[in-house]
Design a protein around this nucleic acid. Structure first.
Lengths: 148, 148
DNA sequence: TGCTAAAGTTAGGTGAGACTAACTTATGCA
DNA sequence: TGCATAAGTTAGTCTCACCTAACTTTAGCA
């Protein structure tokens, strides 16, 4: 099996891989139409994206069958889903954003931030959530929620 | 002057407008080649983007001349540059990110976050920067800087 | 004052990522 | 068990955002 190098995944392909990963977790398998429904794109769009992910060895596709993630795909999918969860949690529990809006913001921001920035966001969230910081976090959330 | 509606600016066009705005501020005028240099794109790319911005009434272009922002363009440009500055400041002064990396992250994140999220990030930064919070901010930055 | 070099534009092409329409394969149930 | 419907694929098109090559305009200076 010859390895080719591919550029890092585009935001779009990250979304497809993340959806496939999440659906595999929740539903046991990732059917193409469910990915399309989750991402609100057409069937051919999913088909093309899966082919691109398969070319990178991230998913295995038996034609007309379910999408399965390779070991690499599982690792990357988990990482992307983790970035998403981390940001959503920060938006909700630190900034006090409405969960639906936090979800949208996380979807977009997860492709924009560097590993290091993400790590620091996570650390900040953890710091502010320590029990000793209860009052501070409450005040911060109050401050974030107020109009400026 | 007939107004057409246009969809909101794409991330790419926001970048061009932001660059034009910033150059106008620092250099007094925005020459096309400077925009291209700032964004690391070719002359024709700038030319095309300026045409698109002009079609939306955001910039005035006299052929072969400097790019000037309209009143709308100035407003939007200032807003976009503000988002950028706000995020960079958060990354540097709250998360303790290296300024060069903060710049890159801000460039990408400025297109990803909603108005509300941005507002709350700003409020959080303001909150943590109040003098009464000196020790907390220092501890937070220390926590963010440490490996997890 | 005219020529050259820098700046800007036009023309044409590429690749990503989306779409619709039409086709193929798989599935489930009468 | 065969056929209708659901799921997936193929083909072809569109737009966006970039590129190079070649052309035009502007401007500076000998």
């Amino acid at each position: 099996m010859q390895k080719k190098h591919h550029p890092p995944l585009s935001p779009s392909l990250e979304d497809y891989l993340e959806a496939a990963y999440t659906l595999s977790r929740t539903d046991g398998s990732a059917r193409s139409w469910r990915i399309g429904a989750a991402l609100k794109v057409s069937k051919p769009s999913v088909s093309g994206a899966i082919r691109a992910l398969a070319a990178r060895g991230l998913v295995l596709q038996e034609p007309y069958g379910a999408v399965r993630l390779s070991a690499d795909g599982l690792r990357l999918g988990a990482e992307i889903a983790g970035r998403h969860a981390l940001l959503k949690d920060f938006f909700v529990s630190i900034l006090g954003l409405d969960p639906a809006e936090a979800e949208n913001d996380a979807c977009r921001a997860e492709h924009a931030l560097s590993r290091e920035a993400l790590r620091r966001v996570q650390a900040l969230a953890l710091f502010l959530k320590t029990p000793a910081r209860r009052a501070t976090l409450a005040a911060a959330r109050r401050a974030a929620g107020e109009a400026i």
